[in-house]
Simulated scan of single mutants.
Amino acid sequence: MAVKRGRGVAAVNYPTGMNLGGDPTQALVHSTPTGSFMVTLSSVDLGQGLKQIMAQICAETIGVPTESVTVDTADTDTGPHCMGTFASRGTHRAGNAVIQAAREARQVMLEVAAEELEVNASDLDTDGSGNIHVKGAPSRSISIFDTALAAHFKHGRSISGRGMFLVPRSYPETETGAMKPSTCYAHACTVAEVEVDEETGEVVVLSVKNVFEIGRALNPKMVEQQLVGGSWMGISHALYETTEPYYPDRHHGARDYNEYLMPGPGDLAETEIAVLERPSGDGPFGAKGPGEMCANPQIPAVANAIFDAVGVRVDTLPITPERVLRALKQRDAGAAA
């Protein structure tokens, strides 16, 4: 018996959203009388940072500081329609809808500013810090604060916009069944290094190296945090987490995170993340959806590493010490025969 070391590789591609039924998402953007902006969505922030990214997208499109934008995802009864937060579609679908709505709101804002400055709206631009000025003449300017006041109390204009992103439906070809189920794909590759104890069946993940191609990282630090967290989650799926044999019967099942088996800080592997940016032609500022994909390739990479170490395939998750030992016994029995 010995501790064996192995290395496994896995690569995946992951679709952003769906295309079988249009996959629509709507967004509304409006200005308050004091020049801050509100984005209204029915896309839900699950902790992945959707509100921050939508605020950045709206601010970049209108030309205001990100802190001037508030994102409301409070109520699907009163908010604009959204298919949902799933299929790694939030940034791509909602982001495109926000861009449309923000462009419409920006145009109204520039039209009001043009009336105040007595110029054409096409001659105006924003400086990104809260002002609108004549192109080539920064001294001729008006603040967005004053523009919003003028719109609400002088011109009777609503600085607002509506946006909707709808993917044209892809119908299967009659002859071949070929279709286009998604508009863009993100990609990932993981290399995992493990140690396997042939006497106990215990698997220790020593290191995980991940490369993700996600279009464009709109907030690089948030992307890094999501990818690192997803990598740890993938290891947890591979070696620890399960609802068996209790699901769907909850009797004697785990009642809290003290009883539900997950890796602790001491079980987490050395993790490296590399991000490749190949902007998507139809993504908001080139972004795709890295969401669910970030926890996918680690699972087959760990399984392949175990095979490289001890020559057995375990195709049932999680890969527990018991399953590893059973596979080793079958291997040895086959060798003896």
Rank of each mutant, 00 (worst) to 15 (best):
M1W: 05
A2D: 15
G8C: 07
V9F: 14
G17H: 11
M18C: 04
N19E: 13
L20Q: 06
G21M: 13
G21C: 13
D23Y: 08
P24K: 13
P24G: 14
A27T: 02
A27Q: 07
P33I: 05
T34E: 14
V39W: 02
T40Q: 13
T40H: 11
L41W: 01
S42Y: 04
Q48D: 14
Q48V: 10
Q48E: 15
G49S: 03
G49C: 07
L50H: 12
I53P: 03
I53C: 00
Q56W: 00
T73I: 10
T73Q: 12
T73E: 13
T76Q: 04
M83V: 15
M83I: 15
S88I: 05
R89V: 07
G90R: 01
T91F: 09
H92G: 02
H92R: 00
R103W: 06
A105G: 09
R106P: 03
M109V: 07
M109Q: 09
L110I: 13
V119S: 06
V119G: 03
A121I: 08
S122P: 00
L124R: 09
L124Q: 03
D125N: 09
T126K: 06
T126I: 03
G130K: 08
R140Q: 12
S143H: 11
A148C: 13
A148G: 08
L149M: 14
K154R: 06
G156V: 13
R157T: 08
S158F: 14
S160Q: 14
S160P: 02
R162V: 10
R162M: 13
G163D: 12
R169P: 00
Y171R: 10
E173G: 12
E175R: 06
E175F: 10
G177M: 01
K180E: 09
S182Y: 15
H187R: 09
E193S: 10
E195W: 02
V203E: 11
V204Y: 04
V208H: 05
N210A: 14
G215R: 03
R216P: 02
R216V: 06
A217I: 01
P220T: 00
V223D: 00
Q225I: 01
L227H: 08
H237C: 15
H237G: 10
Y240I: 09
T242F: 06
E244I: 11
P245T: 05
A254Y: 04
D256F: 01
E259S: 14
L261N: 07
G266M: 01
G266F: 05
E272T: 07
V275D: 00
E277I: 04
R278P: 05
P279A: 07
S280A: 11
G281A: 13
G281T: 09
P284W: 07
Q298L: 12
I306M: 13
I306W: 11
F307Q: 08
V312S: 06
R313I: 14
P318M: 10
E322F: 04
E322D: 15
V324N: 05
R326T: 04
D332E: 11
G334E: 09
